[in-house]
Amino acid sequence: MRRRLSLVDRLTIALPLGWLGLFLALPLVAVVALSFQGIADSIPPIRPLIDSLHGHLAVHATTRAFRIIGSDALYTRAFANGLLNAAMTTLGCMLVGFPLSYAMARAPASRRSLYLFLAILPFWTSFLLRTYAWMGLVRDSGPLNSLLMGLGILDAPLPILYSPAAVLLVMVYSYLPFFVLPMYAVLEKLPQDLLAAAADLGARPLHAFRTVTLPLALPGLVSGAVLVFVPAVGEYVIPELVGNNDTLMIGGILWEEFFQNRDWPVAAAIALVTFLILMLPAAALRRWSGASGAGRA
């Protein structure tokens, strides 16, 4: 089946490879270089890595940025916060998203595409506006508190807005589609006859679920979890809008180093460390899915 690459083939390869190499790989190289640079009182506010001021080349690499983020508890706490928040968000998406995907996948075939459409549609509406909507829903005088107080469950409004709980709630809400889509895709393809066979052989529904459904659904669960966890680690907008001082995370400190402190090397070091932390689970997933894919084929 293999044929020689035609000129058209070469162009469809070269265009994306060239563009992404220039505008996606090169920025990462720039960030790595920058994280080893010193600061200067100039525009841009960095000391060049190499200069040839007195006729010979001088290299000014420094580990200053890494020493700063390693020695200040503010940064380690922000990293811990970001990772913890992403882990809780992933767990929340699983708890909400798995039953939802399962119910969607078990629905009659004629209804499934409608449900899938309904699950995707919020994803098309502005993410910022949906976060904003939650601010209105959970504020002290908002519908949620009014409802709980009207039902007599609460005497005074629950201060949810500007708290870690609000961050978690909105994170789970916003990242839910990233979990539901891969999860649903796997559950929908689950062969029904396997469950029927398990039932015929006397397995109770819960036993069949644990020994048949869950192992087969695992690839969807893992890719959904990674798709939620990895971007969630660096989330900036949600903690900024609905969180408080306790919810300063990686995205927040990078933003502040860049926009407020104008310390580009420290911002670059934060970016580099985050990137390295995130590449580990992503690489693990690739290995894992590559191995299982090879096993199936």
């Binding site: 505008f23 996606l24 989330e235 995205g251 990078l254 580009w264 911002a267 985050t274 995130l278």
Partner: peptide, 17 residues
């Protein structure tokens, strides 16, 4: 990369380029 990497990181990296 764009699907996985956090937006703050990408925005910053673009600007550095």
């Amino acid at each position: 990369i764009p699907i996985f990497a956090p937006e703050v990181l990408l925005g910053f990296a673009f600007l550095m380029l």
